[in-house]
Amino acid sequence: MSTCHQTRNPFSETESPAVGVTCEQLSKRFGSLEVLKQIDLRIEPGEIFVLMGPSGSGKSVLLKHIVGLERPSSGKVTVGEFDAADATTRERVRMALVFQAGALFNSLTVYDNLALYPREHRLASEAGIREKVMRALQILSLEDAAGKYPSQLSGGMRKRVAIARALVMEPQLMLYDEPTSELDPVMAATISEIIATLKDEYHVTSIVVSHDRDLALNIADRVGILMEGRLAVVATPAELRSPADERVADFLNPKINLKQPRFRALAT
């Protein structure tokens, strides 16, 4: 499966196989709290999979399992052919995670943030690194920000820099944690367009954790909805326009009821 989807390197004509992700009976406990409950999921190479769900439903924890920042309490996550919990998987598969707050290195300029990965892995000469970094900044329309520090950037620019930094890694798998949170609607739409464009142009597998219904219904190939640690549904955006599951329907199309507010029900 993986060989028929090739990621196209944004910096050269070379191609590498896009990778799929498989979760088998994945469970995660933090003390007595079970955050993920026997998740079974297959994400195909080259697809955009959007993971939605209420706050605290375990979306970001699932993302951390895929990238190897968390270890399952039971079950297994496989990236390509490799166990995600194995540290060597990060050497075999190029994965890039765009963190919710960007996680940019505050002591480095935007240019140095992007150059860190190729420098540390000695992927090119300084001239080659400069070319890669400037190309990534150009793709995200950030050329003027190269010399700035993260603290000098707006929220939307920080997200774009985080995506550009991920792009420099020439990833086979891109993961986004709430890429449109705290952004105005126009900037949120811009970020959604960037994610879809990167998928179309470079064929990377993209997994997006988001609360953004517009993003999910417009750019996703499939959407998964996590409810209380379980995958309540996995469906295409078209199927989700009229979901059978009442909880999913309520999550996607919540009605504002001023006569019987939800928070009153939550309090009792």
Binding site: L69, R90, F99, F105, L116, Y117
Partner: peptide, 9 residues
């Protein structure tokens, strides 16, 4: 999460 970012890189 800068340390996590390093790990993922």
């Amino acid at each position: 999460q800068e340390v996590d970012a390093l790990v993922t890189m």
